[in-house]
Nucleic acid binder design. Structure first.
Lengths: 262, 262
DNA sequence: CTCATCAGGGTACGCCGTACTCAATTATGT
DNA sequence: ACATAATTGAGTACGGCGTACCCTGATGAG
């Protein structure tokens, strides 16, 4: 995704730092944004660019976010964007950190009542975020571990589960387990929606379309257990998120009780 | 991702079926592949195309899989591929189903010993698959729920956890919970690797690069809990997959015990 | 043998990210 | 006040992508 040009030399023009992209990303993320003293005032702001990009992604998905499209939306030339952002990858990093800040504004770092409630809230908040911005799933999150919003989010999460009485590495692991589960669920949902939108087929039409193939397979006798499943096993009435979350919390409970008993 | 041309009319040339893509995918997935009687013999096979595409993706990632690249690898013209596959999306579906079949060949549908072992095996197998083919994470899996390999995999999974004594919808939910968790973990790993490869920075260099920003944030006093974390909280020595899997199984155990007690 | 049928490949179009160039603008030093 | 150095923003161009369209040949049924 990085070397699309083929001519190489992605970080040669940037005189400020020879380190590459990630340093630039961090600088933009944490940076103060002080302008140079000489020259005309910029007609845009980083904030406006990122906000607009997020708007496009929310409305039409990540694929719609291109530098040309973004510049059109902003009423500027395409290349002007590169005055503010070194490349598209860095723009994505900024988009990521921006929306990650959303839930934090509402929550604040209030005292946690109970770690179970905290875990639940963490999962629900995260899932809500991913549902609101499904394009988040298409951005490499490993890059921006250390944006301001990510750090704040981690702090809030830690505050919630501190009371579990686990070792530090285990607390991190709890967070990772919950986030992993949530991401997995969100991914399923997002992909389902995406597929529905792309093919123009609704959920029901989709399943109806599969039915003949499925039925032939079931009739073959090769899949006895699947054939024996009741009709509503795949029904949309069952909330797989709630189910999984409950199990996960129960699992944590077991560990916490175990530790307390020793 | 579908309407890249802008001229519209994505499914007009195909005389065989006006239904669109998904029907065509299923046909390729389950179909018998009978050739027409007239005309020259095809120089390629669907199998060879898909296998080559998988090879490229394994070696160089999903981005390297383009129709041009694939055709070069196969020694044919680019457009020839469209004789075998209606479009790239369908090719991805086929790639997905192909690698999903891998673990099944080894396992077989032997009698399950214990549902705990089955869940563990399910998770480990899936994680292994995703580690071997990280590009799987970039393919929309919702589309191909019903490829032959997917159906077989589901059957095997069901066989393993049947003994839990849960309702059908709950069994599905168990599978979904485990797979979601595994996908989440795999995604973290893959993104980490990808970021490392793209930036050319190793894991350590990456963290060292962040350190100044992090330390400034910690020094600000805004994040007391994070600042208080021990050094090794993020150490690579802790296996987050094992931890989460253990909790998940414990959580299932709680439910199973609950049901048995009633 | 004829010819309908079908495989294969070339060309072209509209997207994409972005390197490079250059005129216009502006704050500072004199 | 003015000259100057710095910076902006727009234009152009390149190499990639997926794929629509069309033409060339090979094939086997009648």
């Amino acid at each position: 995704m990085k070397k699309t040009t083929g001519t190489g030399d992605t970080s040669g023009t940037n005189a400020t730092s020879g380190s590459g992209d990630i340093g630039r990303s961090l600088e933009l993320l944490w940076g103060t944004g002080d302008r140079p003293s000489r020259g005309p005032k910029p007609g845009l702001t980083l904030d406006r660019i990122v906000a607009t990009a997020v708007g496009i992604a929310d409305a039409e998905g990540m694929d719609a976010v291109s530098m040309r499209r973004l510049s059109t939306e902003l009423g500027t030339g395409t290349m002007s964007l590169y005055r503010y952002v070194p490349g598209k990858a860095e723009l994505l990093d900024l988009m990521l950190d921006r929306v990650q800040g959303e839930p934090l504004d509402a929550v604040g770092t209030r005292e946690p009542v109970d770690w179970r409630a905290a875990v639940e809230s963490m999962a629900r908040t995260h899932l809500g975020l991913l549902r609101r911005h499904p394009w988040l799933l298409k951005i490499n999150q490993a890059r921006t571990v250390l944006g301001p919003s990510a750090v704040r989010g981690l702090e809030v999460s830690l505050a919630g589960i501190k009371g579990m009485g686990l070792r530090d590495a285990e607390l991190i692991s709890v967070i990772i387990a919950v986030q992993s589960f949530v991401v997995g669920i969100a991914r399923m949902e997002a992909e389902s929606d995406e597929a529905a939108k792309e093919t123009g087929l609704s959920h029901e039409d989709f399943w109806d379309g599969q039915r003949p193939y499925l039925e032939r397979a079931m009739a073959s006798g090769e899949f006895p257990l699947m054939a024996a499943l009741s009709e509503d096993a795949f029904s949309t009435g069952f909330d797989h998120f709630e189910f999984g979350l409950r199990r996960l919390i129960d699992g944590f409970e077991t560990l916490v009780a175990e530790r307390a008993g020793e």
